[in-house]
Simulated scan of single mutants.
Amino acid sequence: MHTSADDIRKLLAEKTWAFVGLTDTPYRTVYQMAAFVQRNGVKVVPVNPRAEAVLGEDGHTSVPDGVDVVAVYRRSEFVAPHVDEAIAAGASGVWTPLDVVDEDAAQRALDAGLTVVMDRCPKIEWPAYGPS
């Protein structure tokens, strides 16, 4: 998966991100990344099995309609169903963190017209590509 600077820039400019795997556990990477993008003006939508509210936002058990980016913070082997949810929800993109890659799911997302950024960290990419 070769993610372009334009793809990163496009997704970082989106205003609503669903974070799959987000719970109210501050030491987990997903919490830290969700808090980071929230501090930078992004609405965060927590997605977790208990629909737990996190960072002041109501939680959901699956990716809801109306999100721009679906950030999947689960192991690579669990990415595919959430990419399918992103496609069904009409999201414009999918993001996975460092070391999380599923080429088949990425291709399905690309075929459905979504922008895909895999194996990247929003906090690392923000200084170069985030909105100013």
Rank of each mutant, 00 (worst) to 15 (best):
108 R>S: 02
91 A>V: 08
51 A>C: 07
103 E>G: 05
67 V>I: 03
50 R>N: 10
100 V>R: 02
1 M>W: 02
66 G>N: 06
2 H>C: 10
62 S>M: 09
3 T>M: 11
89 A>H: 07
34 A>E: 07
124 I>Y: 15
38 Q>W: 01
54 V>R: 00
34 A>D: 05
60 H>N: 15
113 G>Q: 04
93 G>I: 00
73 Y>N: 00
36 F>C: 13
31 Y>V: 00
92 S>T: 13
97 P>S: 09
42 V>M: 03
77 E>L: 06
121 C>P: 05
41 G>V: 09
77 E>R: 12
55 L>E: 01
43 K>N: 12
6 D>L: 10
85 E>L: 03
88 A>V: 09
85 E>H: 04
28 R>F: 02
28 R>S: 14
44 V>H: 06
36 F>K: 04
70 V>H: 07
24 D>A: 14
55 L>Y: 00
43 K>T: 14
132 S>V: 11
56 G>P: 09
20 V>W: 13
108 R>D: 08
90 G>N: 13
8 I>M: 05
114 L>K: 02
97 P>R: 02
49 P>D: 12
121 C>L: 01
89 A>Y: 15
110 L>V: 07
6 D>S: 13
99 D>A: 05
69 V>E: 05
117 V>H: 07
42 V>A: 02
46 P>V: 07
71 A>S: 15
53 A>R: 10
100 V>F: 08
84 D>L: 12
40 N>I: 09
94 V>Y: 07
130 G>W: 00
110 L>R: 11
70 V>P: 10
71 A>N: 11
28 R>H: 13
126 W>G: 08
3 T>G: 01
87 I>W: 12
34 A>G: 06
7 D>G: 04
61 T>S: 10
44 V>N: 00
99 D>V: 00
20 V>S: 11
85 E>N: 05
73 Y>S: 07
118 M>V: 08
99 D>Y: 11
89 A>D: 10
31 Y>R: 08
72 V>D: 11
124 I>C: 04
52 E>N: 00
